[in-house]
Write a protein that binds this DNA or RNA. Structure first.
Lengths: 116, 116
DNA sequence: CTGTATCCTTGGCGATACTG
DNA sequence: CAGTATCGCCAAGGATACAG
């Protein structure tokens, strides 16, 4: 007796967690950074490679193909010499920007807090 | 001659990508979902385990310890019988909510677009 | 420049059993 | 209930070389 018991929970989880759809797109190493750089301006393969530092071309190709298949990134071959390829965000890709920016904002705040 | 060359890029990448800080916290399997559920209400270990479905206790422990060390999650042992432990978001943890919600919103939109 | 093709490593994660 | 302790896997990612 006199056992203290916790109150029963009233609310079950309010909604099955709906993160999966979006995370399946922006998940994976480098992907958020790629979207971040493309959100600033369209960029070429080698420009992205430089932006990202140590990414291997294989992985960059993989990510870009995936993003293109998801309708997030547009790939355009320019008739220049030598041929160049320009990657940009599609309209759908731009919908990801608020999410990325929210992450960036929190990143800044966390960094600030840590330095205190 | 008459070689078509692309215009030089004016702007270099505007800012070193600032995603790392935040992604090091919400990155990793299950982590965003844990924050998502905790953002609704404080929850116990086994409640989270149920919420998350197939997560193993080992991984859940790992994640919670990490989040606690990052100052994102608060762990409180309640003097009940049997002893229970309640996890909740700290003030810092609440700062992650906008990012999570942005991801959720995009997830919904992507899902809607795919179904068309 | 823009990728492919191969090979190899690692650590994140799952499964299971067990403890206080 | 709330976790540890072990074991093992395998797929994501890195390194490198090569091709159109």
């Amino acid at each position: 007796m006199a056992v203290v018991r916790r109150k029963n929970r009233v609310a079950p989880p309010p909604e099955k967690c709906p993160l999966t759809e979006c995370l399946s797109i922006i998940g994976g190493a480098w992907t958020p950074n790629i979207i971040w750089y493309l959100s600033v301006q369209p960029r070429r393969f080698s420009e992205l490679k430089n932006d990202l530092g140590s990414i291997s071309p294989k992985v960059l190709t993989e990510r870009l193909k995936r993003l293109e298949a998801d309708g997030v990134v547009l790939r355009e071959v320019k008739p220049t010499s030598p041929p160049t390829v320009e990657y940009s965000l599609t309209e759908l890709g731009n919908e990801l920007k608020p999410a990325i920016e929210a992450i960036v904002n929190v990143g800044h705040r966390l960094k600030a807090l840590k330095q205190q």
